[in-house]
Amino acid sequence: MRIWIDAAPAQASARVFGLSLVERIERLTRRIPSAQVTVDRGPGAAGRRLKAFAAGGPEPILAVDGAGVFDSRLLPFLAARDGSVAVTGGEGPRRAAAMRIGSAAALAAVPDDAAGLGEIADAAVTGGAARRLEPTEFPTFVMGLRRDLPYHLERLPDAAARRAYERFLFWSNYKGSTDFLTRWVFPLAVWPLTRLATAIRLHPNWITLAGVVLALAAVPLFMAGWVWTSIVMCWVMAVLDSVDGKVARVTMTESAIGNFLDHGLDIVHPPLWYLGWAWWLSDGALEHPAFIAAIWLCGFYVADRLVLAVPKALWGRGLHAMDRIDSLVRTVISRRNVNLLIFTLGLALGAPVAAFYVVTVWAGATLAWHAGRTAWLAATRPRVVAAT
């Protein structure tokens, strides 16, 4: 598909999370198969420039306002539609637009003297040469974030609007259901670290790699008795685990290797931590009750992972995105951050063994809840595969 970015407006050079608005759009277009991108910086009316570009070939065109900010899902979705489709968002100076031009009639409807894509889109829709994208057409559920998010697009006319948009983008990339530490405590560090990483253009994979090193190095340190050093490393890793995903999503730098490292680490490191904690607590005696508890804890962990795969297979979304109660329960269930907090408090109070037993019991209770909840939903709710 041929893609035309109108970069003539002065706002197109404004920056959001370290990237100019045109750079952001160019990164989004990489998600469109066979994209051929042209950045048009003028001069002249947008209508004439768009028609001149269209004369270069008969293929459909995706025309994008270079001064706008777009939901990362919107342009690929728009490009995949049939015919001619326009989408607009924002009001007054914040109005932005994009349009798929799929017919000669839609191109002919472009006014020569149109100043911007908003005017072009309105003329095509009013003249019947294009239709407007309806919000109800757009699949809002995001599997990776376990939440529904309507698409957004707008212009950012000033620095205040850009700062507000960065905040919006940051919070919209939080998962809809997560533990209370990730949602309410970690952002105090994640926000400035995300700002810093994007300002210096640090690739999120480097942040993920730092988390991998910290998570794995903490295990032998704990076993060797460097308890508080290891605990600090665990907490830093937990924070970085929020930072890398935010940086990747707000800068559109997600990658297969990044996802593999991030999700692979999330699966592997918790049981390693638990076994490392048990080794220190038991002085390496495998028959010690703490080590036996660790075996149970790891078993609960694996079983819980398997149970949580069932809702994704049956309903196309994770259990914690099914109903409000599931999202609320997710804030306190047995997961790495909650377990780390319980164990840290136990260390601070001089009762690490008791804390470890609490973590084990809480993991068992979490498994029982998830299994019971999944069974109840399977018996009462028909299978529905949601769009992602």
Rank of each mutant, 00 (worst) to 15 (best):
M1Q: 07
I3N: 07
W4C: 00
D6Q: 07
A8K: 10
Q11E: 15
Q11R: 11
L21H: 14
L21D: 07
V22R: 13
R24G: 08
L28M: 12
S34Y: 01
V37Q: 05
R41I: 03
G42Q: 06
P43H: 10
A45G: 02
G47S: 08
G47P: 03
V69E: 13
F70I: 00
F70N: 00
R73F: 02
L74H: 04
L78V: 03
L78N: 10
D82F: 06
V87H: 05
V87D: 08
E91H: 13
E91S: 14
E91V: 12
E91N: 14
G92P: 08
P93K: 11
R94M: 13
R94P: 02
R95H: 11
R95S: 14
A97I: 04
M99A: 11
A105F: 02
A108T: 04
A114S: 02
A114E: 13
D122L: 12
V125E: 12
A129D: 13
A129I: 04
R132K: 14
V142T: 04
L145K: 13
R147G: 00
P150D: 09
Y151K: 04
H152I: 04
D158F: 01
A159C: 08
A161W: 02
R162E: 11
E166F: 00
L169A: 13
R183E: 12
P187M: 01
R195S: 02
A197P: 03
I200T: 03
L202T: 08
G211W: 03
V212A: 14
A215R: 06
L221P: 06
S230I: 05
V236C: 11
M237F: 10
M237V: 02
L240G: 06
T251C: 02
T253F: 00
N259F: 06
Y274F: 12
D283P: 06
A285T: 03
L286G: 02
A290L: 07
A293S: 09
A293M: 03
L297I: 00
L297P: 01
V302P: 06
P311E: 09
L319R: 09
L319S: 08
M322K: 11
D323C: 03
D326W: 12
L328R: 15
S334R: 10
S334Q: 07
R335H: 11
R335C: 10
N339Y: 00
I342L: 15
L345I: 15
L345V: 15
G346V: 02
A348R: 05
A348F: 12
F356Y: 11
Y357K: 01
T360W: 02
T360K: 01
A371Q: 08
T374F: 04
T374E: 08
T380K: 15
V385A: 12
T388V: 09
